[in-house]
């Protein structure tokens, strides 16, 4: 085996290959009903877009962006739903499912008896969450373009942004899953996720909130994600969006580090 002779030179390659084998395992678990669950996940943000963006939007009319530009309400809501979809896609794999695999079915114990390392399991699961998130994002931007809520070129630019959002939330989700103790805690996570979904500048700009609340909202990861995607969608990018990207990258790095360390500590004791 080459890996035994040249461990230093190709250890990184081995790492990505081993992480990929974890992703591949998830792919082989797809069964009929779960396929539908997985793919139909894109439906949720679409339904919200039509109900709130289009339905309630008819009662609202236009809305003014912080940059001063005026856009239709659906145009305002759509990018936020895209960011939220990227978040949901990533979190659904890395919280509930990840926790179950780690603590409940002891799947990772079996994998760790092979050359695969904890951090590689984390990376493999994250890659899987990305695949899932990307399916949702692609479906959603297609709908946005069809409804004339953005242009095709901007839609293409939004896809890498949704990947970054997915990585950041996926890493965060895994880190949280290594910390929580019981299934009941997922009720809390779901409530927190829903609060983020409602108040991260998704349906109304936080400019109307009291100062403290507004400051709080603006440091949440979903707000930064919405800000990034909305700027790309409406073509109003600036320096603030560089900050969004840096924020999400830092979150991803932090989440992965915590998740990898804590997995190692819990599984290899």
């Amino acid at each position: 085996m080459v890996t035994l002779v040249l461990p230093r030179l190709i250890s990184f390659e081995g790492m990505s290959r081993r992480a990929a084998s974890v992703t591949e395992r998830n792919l082989s678990t797809l069964r009929s009903a779960y396929w539908v669950v997985l793919v139909s996940g894109f439906l949720e943000p679409v339904l919200y877009l039509f109900s709130i963006g289009v339905g309630v939007g008819a009662l609202i009319g236009d809305i003014r962006l912080p940059s001063g530009e005026v856009v239709g309400y659906a145009e305002f809501v759509a990018p936020a739903m895209l960011a939220a979809a990227a978040m949901t896609g990533a979190l659904s794999e890395t919280t509930f499912n990840f926790f179950g695999k780690m603590k409940f079915v002891r799947l990772y114990e079996g994998i760790l008896a092979t050359p695969v390392r904890p951090i590689e399991i984390a990376l493999g699961e994250l890659a899987w969450a990305m695949v899932r998130g990307l399916i949702y994002s692609v479906a959603f931007v297609v709908i946005m373009v069809l409804l004339d809520l953005t242009t095709a070129a901007r839609a293409l630019a939004m896809l890498p942004a949704t990947l970054l959002i997915g990585i950041a939330f996926g890493a965060l989700g895994m880190a949280v899953s290594t910390i929580i103790r019981s299934w009941q805690d997922f009720d809390l996570i779901a409530a927190g996720q829903f609060a983020l979904f409602l108040f991260s500048g998704t349906f109304v700009p936080p400019t109307g909130y009291p100062a403290v609340l507004r400051w709080l909202v603006e440091v949440t990861p979903l707000y930064r994600s919405v800000d990034l995607v909305r700027a790309l969608s409406t073509g109003t990018t600036g320096w603030l969006q560089a900050l969004d990207v840096a924020y999400l990258l830092a979150l991803a790095a932090l989440g992965l580090t915590v998740a990898g360390r804590r997995m190692e500590r819990q599984l290899c004791k």
Partner: peptide, 15 residues
């Protein structure tokens, strides 16, 4: 990882 590549493990509880 290099050692585990050459080991087979059958744990006490089937996982």
């Amino acid at each position: 990882p290099r050692i585990r590549a050459r080991l087979g493990v059958c744990p006490q509880l089937d996982n």
